[in-house]
Amino acid sequence: MFQELKPAILIFLGFTLITGIIYPFVVTCISQATMPEQADGSLIVRDGKPVGSALIGQNFSNPKYFWGRPSATEPMPYNAAASSGSNLGPTNPALFNAIKARIKALKNADPGNKLPIPVDLVTASGSGLDPEISPAAAAYQIERVAHARNLDPVKVRQLVEQYTQGRQFGILGEPRVNVLKLNLALDSLR
């Protein structure tokens, strides 16, 4: 019965060394040497200071910025230190009320807009940190942003198109717009 205990202990230690220490350090060394930007979180740097990560969304609620996906992280939205979805079930009245409140906020910021609202703009993302919205959700906000900034909507539309990413390799995933990058580009327009 105890015959296999000794090899068990020795092999366990061996694997801890190989897979628990050597393997992650090798991956880290190669990544840091060849792809430091990605390995360190794809940071966006402006004037020498990091202003965010291209992969992690930020909260926007001012009408002059494009808004991202609603975020269900606690205690504040887009809390990158505590990723979380809403986990609200499809028939939960709390989900219905949350969506109603988000629609109201969008309408208050843009009373003249009577178009149907793209679903991703009123539903919380899985991570709570989704950096992107659909091109439809960006298009819905163009008039509002242009108005708030006294810009020609055509110019804002061009910027949105410039920041729209198609499917990867033309096939994979969905087309999307990175909200933080787009808003930073808006801010540096003038």
């Binding site: 996906r69 979805g85 809403s86 986990n87 609200l88 499809p90 989900l95 679903v119 991703d120 539903t123 919380a124 993302s125 899985g126 991570s127 989704d130 992107e132 919205i133 659909s134 995933g173 969905e174 999307r176």
Partner: peptide, 8 residues
């Protein structure tokens, strides 16, 4: 149904 799903 985009609740709990990521755009990409």
């Amino acid at each position: 149904n985009m609740e709990g799903k990521e755009t990409r």
